[in-house]
Amino acid sequence: MKHSRRHVTFALLSGLLAALLLAACGPSNNVRLLPPPLDASVLPAPSAPRVSVVTFADQRQDQSALGVRRDKSAFVTGDDVPQWISRALADELARNGMQVTFALNVNQARSGNPDYLVTGQVDEVWLREASATDISSTLRVSYVLANRQGRLLRESLNASQSRSGLPSGAAADNLMLETLRDLVKPMAQKIVQAVQAQK
């Protein structure tokens, strides 16, 4: 009798340990918002347009959470969400050969007398963990490109991704980074095209 009880206890502990290990391998509730790596960027020509990107306003309905896990707990971050997106856009514009500055507000941006100003707002940044192996993300922003005469371009853009695979501690971090890239690359291209059309 003692032997069988010990066997059951051992089996329960083994199962609990396996469940804990699997959970530990999954994404944590705290998500790191990683910046896209700086690859070889194009050096801007002295005559390249001067663009100032202003930190986007945070218009998310829930600014305290980044999403929801399958146990209904929240994904959170210690990083500044609007700065994460705005800086990534500024870096992407610099890769496209523009002279870019990053400003915390419009007054700071205007003090540098740029040729173009990019402002915007973050409408949605959301992660959803459907299961131990399935996670999805959505980013949505609205932005405005203006020159000294007025607005040139205004639009909303969104990017979403989903990933299935073995649980990983960095799954949420990496998924957010890939989604950010999907968002800022087309945004930067549209801004570049609009600026070039002014020449």
Rank of each mutant, 00 (worst) to 15 (best):
P82V: 01
L16Y: 05
V192P: 01
A57T: 03
V54N: 03
R87K: 12
Q193L: 13
F56C: 02
Q149K: 13
L175Q: 01
F75P: 00
V144T: 10
T9Q: 11
G97R: 00
V31M: 03
A94R: 11
L17Y: 01
S47H: 05
H3T: 11
C25M: 09
R148E: 14
F56W: 05
M98S: 06
E178D: 09
A188R: 00
R95H: 14
N30R: 14
V100R: 00
L43Q: 02
V192K: 11
A170L: 09
V125Q: 08
R128N: 12
S28N: 09
A109R: 01
K199T: 09
Y143A: 06
K185G: 06
T55R: 13
M1V: 06
K185S: 10
S73F: 12
N29G: 15
A159G: 12
R87Q: 14
L34F: 07
S86D: 02
R87I: 13
A19V: 12
E178F: 12
V192S: 07
M1R: 06
S160W: 03
P186V: 01
K199Q: 14
L153G: 07
P114H: 05
A74G: 06
L180T: 04
S160Y: 03
P82G: 00
A194T: 15
N30H: 10
F10H: 15
A48W: 04
A88P: 01
C25F: 14
T138W: 05
R60D: 10
S142I: 02
S162T: 02
A74V: 03
A65L: 15
G15M: 08
V100L: 05
D80P: 06
S14W: 11
F75K: 00
D39Y: 07
V122C: 07
Y116N: 12
Q59H: 11
E92H: 04
L152F: 01
V76F: 02
I135S: 00
A130M: 11
S131G: 12
L180R: 11
G169I: 15
A170V: 13
V53T: 02
Q121S: 12
N174C: 11
D79N: 14
H7G: 08
S142E: 08
P37L: 04
N174A: 12
Q61Y: 09
